[in-house]
Design a protein around this nucleic acid. Sequence first.
DNA 1: GTGAAAGCGCTAACAT
DNA 2: ATGTTAGCGCTTTCAC
Lengths: 363, 363
Amino acid sequence: MSKRPTIADVARLAGVHKATASRALNPEADARVSAATARRVRTAAQELGFTPNTAARSLRTNRSSTVGVLIPDLTNPLFPPMARGIEEVLTRRGYTALLANTDNDQAKERTRFEALRGRQVDGFIVATAQREHALLAQAHAQGVPVVLLSRGTDLPMFPLVAADDATGMELAVRHLLELGHRSIAHLAGPQTLSTGAIRTRAFQQAVRAAGVAADRAPVLVSEAYSVRAGEQAARELLDRHPGSTAIVAGNDLIALGALHVLRERGLRCPQDVSLVGYNDMQFADEFQPPLTTVHVPHLELGAEAARLLLEQLERSDGQGAGQGLGRAGAGPAAVAVAKTVLLPVRLVVRDSTAAPQAGSEAG
Amino acid sequence: MSKRPTIADVARLAGVHKATASRALNPEADARVSAATARRVRTAAQELGFTPNTAARSLRTNRSSTVGVLIPDLTNPLFPPMARGIEEVLTRRGYTALLANTDNDQAKERTRFEALRGRQVDGFIVATAQREHALLAQAHAQGVPVVLLSRGTDLPMFPLVAADDATGMELAVRHLLELGHRSIAHLAGPQTLSTGAIRTRAFQQAVRAAGVAADRAPVLVSEAYSVRAGEQAARELLDRHPGSTAIVAGNDLIALGALHVLRERGLRCPQDVSLVGYNDMQFADEFQPPLTTVHVPHLELGAEAARLLLEQLERSDGQGAGQGLGRAGAGPAAVAVAKTVLLPVRLVVRDSTAAPQAGSEAG
DNA sequence: GTGAAAGCGCTAACAT
DNA sequence: ATGTTAGCGCTTTCAC
């Protein structure tokens, strides 16, 4: 366990001063060093296997090249691809992600957030946003750099990278309409989340635009994006609206719950009831039946969020306040509004949707 | 973005010296401080919202309370539960995990390993071990604290936390035998991984013990733990051993590949061929058909690995070399051997296994 | 273009 | 039980 070489060792071997070595090794300052010495220093560093002590650097620069990532639960198949997308762009730029699972628990989230701040993270990528979010409001007031991933807040405090859910939901509903369905129910996700609210609204607009009467397009809200909650909501739906020939779920987990309930009631999917999920999570194509769903590019979502955050960090590097903002409206009175990036989605048709059977399940 | 309070601020507010404040705030040293001042200091810290600058602490103590975690791929459903188990015990003790995906790529693994070392991680949890592993051998030589997770090396260099795969495989084979199968094939995982080798050996022992002839218990090696590789191996298996009435796969992903191939050949599972997976990964119960498999407690595996590493870190805290070793054999000539913890598994019977149909598929 | 010197915030000797 | 001092390894003024 021989001690690791420091920059002083490198400087000595290269025959220069510590400061010069530091400059030569740092891309931003190496213009101030002659090409020859720069090369000598880099060779020396290579030879010794020098890697800078990040703690020392961090202490000096007050930056850590580290980013906190708040996600609900790594065990939910949506998030691993996002995490990988984040990791990929972050590491390429010398940053490291610190992942924290919050389990949608506010107290836990706050604890982890504080702990990460204590570790001098330079910013956060937050995939746990509620439409109203005390912690985020506070973070915003304190000028902490944050990028929102997948879920937004009602106030556009922070840049957001999300899927184009309005379009996605429209695709889903249109698919069902084209198959001939006229009684389409929505098993909505939690309305406290932007994804839940946006998809629900888009569902309602799509059915209304097609001239489907409101009572033929009921919305039942699942209290969580989970199989269990999906089952509960699905039971209620089948009890109260037995005439529905199709269901579009707020996400794939809820759809899975619905699948269970259909099975438990002896209803066949898609013959008796068609079902559309949302997200196209891993293994959605292995379900029984393989799920028709809206594909969301989770990895790209994560990658883009990381890019946005880095951009913001770089910008606010020199000066203090910089919050990575775009401008809405024009003129001097314009309010600062954060940029939103919407990534395109597409419908993936598999076996859980089909034309409604004549007579069957008609309300 | 007012500057964060330092320990000097806390000391001033409490009317003591920095060093005293530091002692009062550090559990290990607070015995050397009077209860009264300790309380005063802690109150002051609370009031200011003081959180120590980890970079400074790290620089001074040469420890980071940070652990590197090497996994193949977060997107493989086995690893998120492990990561959560790790996170849970680590954060409880004030540590943070730095996750890195290696994609089973040696170059990538080395790069990430070095990067993490550069960040002064105190140790590693490695779930990417090959039976022969250059990087790990080297890490061992350098005295880097490492705990192996799930996959071991041939040489017991490091403590290992894994599932009791020998028993698990025996359970799987016995289940098939009890159903009446006498032609059981094994779609093995990569033999360069301890899990692949151990499960294969256990398979062979189990069938041999039951008196099944070797040619009635063929072993085909899948070149990766993946659906794709599983499909390839399964095709070869069905081509070369069409008489098999049951398959036990090296893991659930391989089993899934086998399922695809059975379907593509018009063979029904379990009526024509029974199939057993391994791991009981998330959603294995949603496959078509729901998969009979060996349940492995992945979260507990991760948690236990974290515990072992912390133990080792605590121990080697003061002195230098401590490698967290047990002793094998007795007497002065005994070789240092690292502890292995095997967690129990259990067979989960679902719908992919059944008694062989009389006559069908008989070789 | 390079060297000298200071200091980030913390903790571990060493006093007292 | 508490204060004093020094220094972890790095970057960044400031000189020259």
